Amino acid sequence: MPVPPRSPSHSPASVVAALRAAGCVFAEEEAELLLAAARTPDELTSLVDRRARGLPLEHVLGWAGFRGLRIAVEPGVFVPRRRTEFLVEQALAQAPDASVVVDLCCGSGAVGAALADALGRVELHAADIDPAAVRCARRNIAGYGGQVHEGDLFAALPDGLRGRVGLLAANVPYVPSGEVGRLPAEARDHEPLTALDGGADGLDVLRRVAAGAARWLAPGGCVLVETSGRQAPEAVRIFAAAGLSARVAVSEEWSAHVVIGTCA
């Protein structure tokens, strides 16, 4: 439908001013996205108001950009971070011919979708414990013929995947419990705690993934987990103790650290 002419109160300058007043650091870029998304002046008012109240931009828009894809993101679902694109890059470099891919702790399914988009025809599975994330992921990987399972880590996966997985990506929560309260309000107030809180040292879920990975990976298969630079040395030790050949890949550009474990 045609968009009615904007009144002065809906001008780009007024939208930028409203976003700046709300503390949005990238007000100009966000204003462009909101102006493009709004079909009517009333809808624009609603979008700007929701963003000004602190709702993550991706939840306001209903999507997040990730590795060239537009990933649907519903309110209450973890927003994929741009630094996690480094995890995808490392996964593709490790196993460019993988035919079975699993995205654990999948959230919106962004990692699984990006891997399937790059690899082409793969058997794709994703899993998350949060029902809202599962619904969202199903939207994002349906086009790749993927399946999304609801449940706790490996317990959610079909038994037929044991020993067959070439790429296992697990974007686990890794914020220490005591630091969750210091996260930006956008994450702390609008994303599920299960996607953020990694336990006392931030590595609780990573330990569980490492402990179970070898039973699911094919020979030579890889498991990749994002973590922080401070946690990376301990994460490598955890992977090695689980019988995996482990190393850390680092991106200075994205301040990203990915632990890579390979099954013998």
Rank of each mutant, 00 (worst) to 15 (best):
A31V: 10
F154I: 01
S177N: 05
G120P: 07
P41K: 10
A22G: 04
L193Y: 12
V165E: 04
G62M: 13
F78H: 05
A37R: 15
C222P: 01
T45V: 00
S46F: 00
V205M: 14
P233E: 06
D97Y: 08
L167G: 05
A137W: 03
A64T: 04
E191R: 05
D128T: 09
H125S: 12
G109C: 10
A155E: 15
A200E: 15
G23N: 12
V180S: 04
W216G: 07
T84L: 10
A22M: 13
R39E: 12
G65H: 13
P158M: 06
D197E: 11
A214Y: 13
A246S: 11
G109M: 00
G146W: 06
G146E: 05
R138Y: 03
L119S: 14
A142N: 02
Q231I: 00
V180H: 01
A116R: 02
V209M: 13
W216E: 07
L87W: 05
V225C: 15
P96Q: 09
T45S: 09
S255P: 02
P131M: 07
L104S: 09
P2W: 10
R82H: 14
A155H: 15
P176R: 12
V209G: 11
I71G: 02
D204S: 15
H59S: 05
V175T: 14
D197L: 04
V258Y: 03
P173C: 10
R230W: 11
G143R: 13
A110M: 13
V79F: 04
E123F: 04
S251K: 07
A235D: 02
V175Q: 07
A218Y: 10
E30I: 01
R70F: 00
L115R: 01
E186M: 07
H59N: 02
H10C: 00
G143E: 04
D204W: 09
V88N: 04
A27I: 12
A137T: 04
E150A: 08
E253M: 06
C106E: 09
L44Q: 02
G143C: 04
L244K: 13
H149Y: 13
P219C: 11
W254R: 10
L92R: 13
A256H: 07
A256C: 14
A242R: 01
D130C: 05
V205I: 15
L183T: 08
A126P: 06
A91C: 15
A214I: 12
D49R: 06
A214K: 15
Y144E: 02
V77A: 02
V102M: 13
R237W: 05
A187Y: 00
E74P: 00
I260A: 06
R182W: 12
A213G: 12
L104M: 15
A235M: 00
N140T: 02
A118V: 10
T40I: 01
V111R: 07
L104I: 09
P75T: 07
E226V: 13
G243F: 02
R139D: 03
V79H: 03
N171F: 03
G212I: 13
V165G: 08
L119Q: 11
L69E: 06
A200N: 06
G54L: 01
P75F: 09
Y144A: 03
H190F: 12
L69K: 12
G107Q: 03
V223T: 09
P184E: 07
G229L: 10
A64G: 03
C105E: 09
